[in-house]
Design a binder for these strands. Structure first.
Lengths: 135, 135
DNA sequence: CTTTGTGCAAATTCTTTGCACCAAA
DNA sequence: TTTGGTGCAAAGAATTTGCACAAAG
Protein backbone atom coordinates (compact mmCIF):
# COMPACT_ATOMS: atom_id res chain seq x y z
CA UNK A 1 0.00 0.00 0.00
CA UNK A 2 2.88 2.33 0.76
CA UNK A 3 4.20 1.72 -2.73
CA UNK A 4 0.98 2.98 -4.25
CA UNK A 5 1.23 6.06 -2.11
CA UNK A 6 4.69 6.81 -3.48
CA UNK A 7 3.67 5.78 -6.97
CA UNK A 8 0.96 8.43 -7.06
CA UNK A 9 3.40 11.17 -6.15
CA UNK A 10 5.31 10.48 -9.38
CA UNK A 11 2.29 11.81 -11.20
CA UNK A 12 1.69 14.74 -8.82
CA UNK A 13 -1.38 13.07 -7.44
CA UNK A 14 -2.05 13.74 -3.76
CA UNK A 15 -2.52 10.36 -2.18
CA UNK A 16 -5.68 9.79 -0.18
CA UNK A 17 -6.74 6.52 1.37
CA UNK A 18 -9.13 5.94 -1.53
CA UNK A 19 -6.71 6.90 -4.28
CA UNK A 20 -3.96 4.71 -2.87
CA UNK A 21 -6.34 1.79 -2.59
CA UNK A 22 -7.47 2.19 -6.20
CA UNK A 23 -3.90 2.52 -7.48
CA UNK A 24 -2.82 -0.42 -5.35
CA UNK A 25 -5.59 -2.51 -6.87
CA UNK A 26 -4.59 -1.52 -10.40
CA UNK A 27 -0.91 -2.30 -9.76
CA UNK A 28 -1.62 -5.70 -8.25
CA UNK A 29 -4.41 -6.75 -10.59
CA UNK A 30 -3.47 -6.25 -14.21
CA UNK A 31 -6.88 -7.23 -15.50
CA UNK A 32 -7.92 -3.91 -17.10
CA UNK A 33 -10.80 -3.60 -14.67
CA UNK A 34 -14.00 -1.64 -15.07
CA UNK A 35 -15.15 0.94 -12.52
CA UNK A 36 -17.53 -1.60 -11.13
CA UNK A 37 -14.89 -4.28 -10.75
CA UNK A 38 -12.67 -1.87 -8.84
CA UNK A 39 -15.55 -0.75 -6.68
CA UNK A 40 -16.69 -4.29 -5.90
CA UNK A 41 -13.16 -5.40 -5.10
CA UNK A 42 -12.49 -2.56 -2.69
CA UNK A 43 -15.82 -1.94 -1.02
CA UNK A 44 -15.67 -4.98 1.32
CA UNK A 45 -12.60 -3.53 3.02
CA UNK A 46 -13.73 0.09 2.58
CA UNK A 47 -17.47 0.02 3.24
CA UNK A 48 -17.93 3.77 2.88
CA UNK A 49 -16.27 3.93 -0.53
CA UNK A 50 -18.57 5.35 -3.16
CA UNK A 51 -18.61 4.64 -6.85
CA UNK A 52 -18.46 8.38 -7.50
CA UNK A 53 -15.07 8.44 -5.83
CA UNK A 54 -13.89 5.61 -8.04
CA UNK A 55 -15.05 7.58 -11.09
CA UNK A 56 -13.38 10.78 -9.83
CA UNK A 57 -10.19 8.92 -9.01
CA UNK A 58 -9.84 7.30 -12.40
CA UNK A 59 -10.61 10.55 -14.20
CA UNK A 60 -7.79 12.13 -12.24
CA UNK A 61 -5.40 9.23 -12.93
CA UNK A 62 -6.10 9.44 -16.66
CA UNK A 63 -5.69 13.22 -16.67
CA UNK A 64 -2.30 12.90 -14.95
CA UNK A 65 -1.18 10.11 -17.25
CA UNK A 66 -0.97 7.51 -14.49
CA UNK A 67 -3.36 5.15 -16.22
CA UNK A 68 -4.76 4.67 -19.69
CA UNK A 69 -8.48 4.44 -20.44
CA UNK A 70 -9.13 1.72 -23.00
CA UNK A 71 -11.65 2.09 -25.81
CA UNK A 72 -11.79 -1.66 -26.45
CA UNK A 73 -14.94 -2.37 -24.46
CA UNK A 74 -18.12 -0.74 -25.71
CA UNK A 75 -20.04 -1.52 -22.55
CA UNK A 76 -17.78 -0.12 -19.84
CA UNK A 77 -14.66 1.96 -19.51
CA UNK A 78 -11.61 -0.15 -18.64
CA UNK A 79 -8.33 1.05 -17.18
CA UNK A 80 -4.72 -0.03 -17.57
CA UNK A 81 -1.83 1.06 -15.31
CA UNK A 82 0.62 -0.09 -17.94
CA UNK A 83 0.94 2.97 -20.13
CA UNK A 84 3.71 1.50 -22.30
CA UNK A 85 3.12 0.68 -25.98
CA UNK A 86 1.23 -2.59 -26.16
CA UNK A 87 -2.01 -3.89 -27.64
CA UNK A 88 -5.09 -5.54 -26.18
CA UNK A 89 -7.36 -8.43 -26.93
CA UNK A 90 -10.95 -8.71 -25.78
CA UNK A 91 -12.82 -11.99 -25.70
CA UNK A 92 -16.25 -11.67 -27.30
CA UNK A 93 -17.52 -14.44 -25.10
CA UNK A 94 -16.34 -13.76 -21.55
CA UNK A 95 -15.34 -10.13 -21.99
CA UNK A 96 -11.90 -10.42 -20.40
CA UNK A 97 -9.16 -8.17 -21.76
CA UNK A 98 -5.64 -9.54 -22.27
CA UNK A 99 -2.39 -7.73 -22.99
CA UNK A 100 -0.61 -8.33 -26.27
CA UNK A 101 3.08 -7.57 -25.92
CA UNK A 102 5.82 -8.01 -28.46
CA UNK A 103 4.32 -6.27 -31.47
CA UNK A 104 6.69 -4.34 -33.70
CA UNK A 105 7.25 -0.84 -32.39
CA UNK A 106 6.47 0.61 -35.81
CA UNK A 107 2.89 -0.43 -35.27
CA UNK A 108 2.57 2.15 -32.52
CA UNK A 109 4.08 4.93 -34.56
CA UNK A 110 1.91 7.83 -35.51
CA UNK A 111 1.16 7.97 -39.24
CA UNK A 112 2.13 11.12 -41.08
CA UNK A 113 -0.90 13.21 -41.76
CA UNK A 114 -0.77 16.91 -42.35
CA UNK A 115 -4.22 17.47 -41.02
CA UNK A 116 -4.42 15.50 -37.82
CA UNK A 117 -2.71 16.06 -34.53
CA UNK A 118 -2.45 12.51 -33.25
CA UNK A 119 -1.36 11.94 -29.65
CA UNK A 120 -2.34 8.33 -28.97
CA UNK A 121 -2.70 4.97 -30.67
CA UNK A 122 -4.75 2.01 -29.64
CA UNK A 123 -4.51 -1.43 -31.21
CA UNK A 124 -7.30 -3.81 -30.31
CA UNK A 125 -7.96 -7.42 -31.23
CA UNK A 126 -11.22 -9.29 -30.85
CA UNK A 127 -12.13 -12.95 -30.83
CA UNK A 128 -12.36 -15.83 -28.38
CA UNK A 129 -9.91 -16.54 -25.61
CA UNK A 130 -8.53 -20.01 -24.94
CA UNK A 131 -11.15 -20.85 -22.33
CA UNK A 132 -14.03 -19.76 -24.50
CA UNK A 133 -12.81 -21.23 -27.80
CA UNK A 134 -14.85 -24.37 -27.22
CA UNK A 135 -18.12 -22.44 -27.10
CA UNK B 1 -32.21 4.26 -52.91
CA UNK B 2 -32.56 1.38 -55.33
CA UNK B 3 -28.81 0.74 -54.99
CA UNK B 4 -29.16 0.29 -51.23
CA UNK B 5 -31.93 -2.17 -51.85
CA UNK B 6 -29.66 -4.27 -54.09
CA UNK B 7 -26.70 -3.73 -51.79
CA UNK B 8 -28.54 -5.32 -48.87
CA UNK B 9 -29.29 -8.44 -50.88
CA UNK B 10 -25.56 -9.11 -51.19
CA UNK B 11 -25.58 -9.76 -47.48
CA UNK B 12 -28.83 -11.76 -47.50
CA UNK B 13 -30.65 -8.95 -45.79
CA UNK B 14 -34.29 -8.57 -46.77
CA UNK B 15 -34.72 -4.97 -47.75
CA UNK B 16 -37.48 -3.01 -46.03
CA UNK B 17 -38.12 0.70 -46.44
CA UNK B 18 -36.35 1.38 -43.15
CA UNK B 19 -33.37 -0.89 -43.82
CA UNK B 20 -32.81 0.56 -47.27
CA UNK B 21 -33.01 4.09 -45.90
CA UNK B 22 -30.44 3.30 -43.19
CA UNK B 23 -28.09 1.60 -45.64
CA UNK B 24 -28.54 4.42 -48.11
CA UNK B 25 -27.60 6.92 -45.43
CA UNK B 26 -24.49 4.93 -44.50
CA UNK B 27 -23.38 4.61 -48.12
CA UNK B 28 -23.84 8.29 -48.87
CA UNK B 29 -22.53 9.66 -45.58
CA UNK B 30 -19.21 8.12 -44.65
CA UNK B 31 -19.08 9.83 -41.28
CA UNK B 32 -19.19 6.76 -39.00
CA UNK B 33 -22.48 7.90 -37.57
CA UNK B 34 -24.00 7.03 -34.22
CA UNK B 35 -27.49 5.57 -33.90
CA UNK B 36 -28.75 8.98 -32.95
CA UNK B 37 -27.20 10.69 -35.95
CA UNK B 38 -28.80 8.16 -38.27
CA UNK B 39 -32.14 8.50 -36.53
CA UNK B 40 -32.07 12.30 -36.59
CA UNK B 41 -31.05 12.37 -40.23
CA UNK B 42 -33.83 10.04 -41.36
CA UNK B 43 -36.74 10.90 -39.11
CA UNK B 44 -37.70 14.15 -40.90
CA UNK B 45 -38.48 12.20 -44.07
CA UNK B 46 -39.71 9.12 -42.15
CA UNK B 47 -41.70 10.51 -39.24
CA UNK B 48 -42.80 7.14 -37.94
CA UNK B 49 -39.27 5.72 -37.80
CA UNK B 50 -38.33 4.58 -34.32
CA UNK B 51 -34.94 4.46 -32.74
CA UNK B 52 -35.56 0.82 -31.85
CA UNK B 53 -35.72 0.03 -35.54
CA UNK B 54 -32.43 1.81 -36.11
CA UNK B 55 -30.90 -0.29 -33.33
CA UNK B 56 -32.40 -3.49 -34.73
CA UNK B 57 -31.28 -2.63 -38.23
CA UNK B 58 -27.69 -1.98 -37.29
CA UNK B 59 -27.49 -5.10 -35.15
CA UNK B 60 -28.62 -7.05 -38.20
CA UNK B 61 -26.17 -5.29 -40.52
CA UNK B 62 -23.29 -6.06 -38.16
CA UNK B 63 -24.38 -9.68 -37.77
CA UNK B 64 -24.46 -10.10 -41.56
CA UNK B 65 -21.12 -8.38 -42.03
CA UNK B 66 -22.56 -5.46 -43.99
CA UNK B 67 -21.20 -2.89 -41.57
CA UNK B 68 -18.58 -2.74 -38.87
CA UNK B 69 -19.28 -1.48 -35.34
CA UNK B 70 -16.43 0.72 -34.12
CA UNK B 71 -15.14 0.65 -30.56
CA UNK B 72 -13.32 3.97 -30.93
CA UNK B 73 -16.00 6.08 -29.28
CA UNK B 74 -16.63 5.31 -25.62
CA UNK B 75 -19.87 7.27 -25.56
CA UNK B 76 -21.80 5.82 -28.49
CA UNK B 77 -21.58 2.98 -30.92
CA UNK B 78 -20.50 4.14 -34.37
CA UNK B 79 -20.92 2.28 -37.64
CA UNK B 80 -18.84 2.04 -40.79
CA UNK B 81 -20.07 0.61 -44.12
CA UNK B 82 -16.48 0.30 -45.27
CA UNK B 83 -15.48 -3.09 -43.93
CA UNK B 84 -12.07 -3.10 -45.65
CA UNK B 85 -8.84 -2.92 -43.62
CA UNK B 86 -8.32 0.67 -42.56
CA UNK B 87 -7.84 2.61 -39.34
CA UNK B 88 -9.74 5.44 -37.65
CA UNK B 89 -8.99 8.70 -35.93
CA UNK B 90 -11.25 10.36 -33.39
CA UNK B 91 -10.94 14.01 -32.48
CA UNK B 92 -10.95 14.49 -28.71
CA UNK B 93 -12.44 17.91 -29.16
CA UNK B 94 -15.29 17.63 -31.65
CA UNK B 95 -15.72 13.86 -31.60
CA UNK B 96 -15.71 13.35 -35.36
CA UNK B 97 -14.24 10.12 -36.66
CA UNK B 98 -12.02 10.12 -39.76
CA UNK B 99 -10.75 7.25 -41.89
CA UNK B 100 -7.04 6.54 -42.07
CA UNK B 101 -6.20 4.72 -45.27
CA UNK B 102 -2.81 3.69 -46.59
CA UNK B 103 -1.36 1.96 -43.56
CA UNK B 104 0.84 -1.07 -44.21
CA UNK B 105 -1.24 -4.19 -44.62
CA UNK B 106 0.95 -5.99 -42.08
CA UNK B 107 -0.53 -3.76 -39.42
CA UNK B 108 -3.88 -5.47 -39.88
CA UNK B 109 -2.45 -8.94 -39.69
CA UNK B 110 -3.36 -11.10 -36.78
CA UNK B 111 -0.45 -11.74 -34.39
CA UNK B 112 0.50 -15.34 -33.76
CA UNK B 113 -0.72 -16.44 -30.39
CA UNK B 114 -1.34 -19.99 -29.47
CA UNK B 115 -4.00 -19.13 -26.96
CA UNK B 116 -6.22 -16.59 -28.63
CA UNK B 117 -8.61 -17.00 -31.50
CA UNK B 118 -8.48 -13.54 -33.03
CA UNK B 119 -11.00 -12.64 -35.72
CA UNK B 120 -10.80 -8.85 -35.93
CA UNK B 121 -8.36 -5.97 -35.54
CA UNK B 122 -9.09 -2.35 -34.82
CA UNK B 123 -6.50 0.41 -35.05
CA UNK B 124 -7.54 3.72 -33.51
CA UNK B 125 -5.82 7.07 -33.27
CA UNK B 126 -6.77 9.93 -30.99
CA UNK B 127 -5.93 13.61 -30.95
CA UNK B 128 -7.20 16.84 -32.43
CA UNK B 129 -8.44 17.27 -35.97
CA UNK B 130 -7.38 20.17 -38.18
CA UNK B 131 -10.35 22.35 -37.27
CA UNK B 132 -9.90 21.82 -33.54
CA UNK B 133 -6.11 22.08 -33.42
CA UNK B 134 -6.35 25.78 -32.57
CA UNK B 135 -8.32 25.09 -29.39
C1' DC C 1 -10.25 28.67 8.61
C1' DT C 2 -9.76 27.31 3.82
C1' DT C 3 -9.20 24.28 0.36
C1' DT C 4 -9.70 19.78 -1.49
C1' DG C 5 -11.77 15.16 -1.43
C1' DT C 6 -15.59 12.07 -0.54
C1' DG C 7 -20.13 10.14 -0.88
C1' DC C 8 -25.05 10.14 -1.34
C1' DA C 9 -29.00 10.79 -4.26
C1' DA C 10 -30.89 12.33 -8.35
C1' DA C 11 -30.47 13.16 -13.14
C1' DT C 12 -28.87 12.01 -17.80
C1' DT C 13 -27.65 9.27 -21.57
C1' DC C 14 -27.38 5.17 -24.25
C1' DT C 15 -29.15 0.73 -25.07
C1' DT C 16 -32.25 -3.23 -24.41
C1' DT C 17 -36.65 -5.52 -23.71
C1' DG C 18 -41.64 -6.72 -23.90
C1' DC C 19 -45.33 -6.51 -26.40
C1' DA C 20 -48.94 -5.04 -29.71
C1' DC C 21 -49.68 -3.81 -34.35
C1' DC C 22 -48.44 -3.75 -39.35
C1' DA C 23 -46.73 -5.67 -43.71
C1' DA C 24 -45.22 -8.95 -46.94
C1' DA C 25 -45.27 -13.57 -48.84
C1' DT D 1 -52.88 -16.91 -42.28
C1' DT D 2 -48.32 -17.01 -40.82
C1' DT D 3 -43.95 -15.15 -40.30
C1' DG D 4 -41.08 -11.47 -39.75
C1' DG D 5 -40.54 -6.29 -39.10
C1' DT D 6 -41.67 -2.03 -36.83
C1' DG D 7 -42.52 1.15 -33.09
C1' DC D 8 -44.02 2.59 -28.61
C1' DA D 9 -43.25 2.72 -23.78
C1' DA D 10 -40.87 0.99 -20.00
C1' DA D 11 -36.82 -0.99 -18.02
C1' DG D 12 -31.89 -1.33 -17.38
C1' DA D 13 -27.09 -0.11 -17.16
C1' DA D 14 -23.26 3.19 -17.11
C1' DT D 15 -21.94 7.62 -16.17
C1' DT D 16 -22.43 12.48 -14.64
C1' DT D 17 -23.96 16.20 -11.67
C1' DG D 18 -25.27 18.90 -7.51
C1' DC D 19 -24.56 19.46 -3.14
C1' DA D 20 -23.53 18.66 1.83
C1' DC D 21 -20.24 16.88 4.87
C1' DA D 22 -15.47 15.27 6.13
C1' DA D 23 -10.49 15.58 6.02
C1' DA D 24 -6.07 17.67 5.53
C1' DG D 25 -3.00 21.35 5.75
Amino acid sequence: MYESHQYLRQFSIKPSVQRSAVMNFLLKNRIHPTIDEIYLALSPSMPTLSKTTVYNTLDLFVERGAVRALAIDERNARYDVDVSAHAHFMCRSCGTVHDIFGLKTQMFQIPETTKLNIDAVEISYFGKCEKCSGN
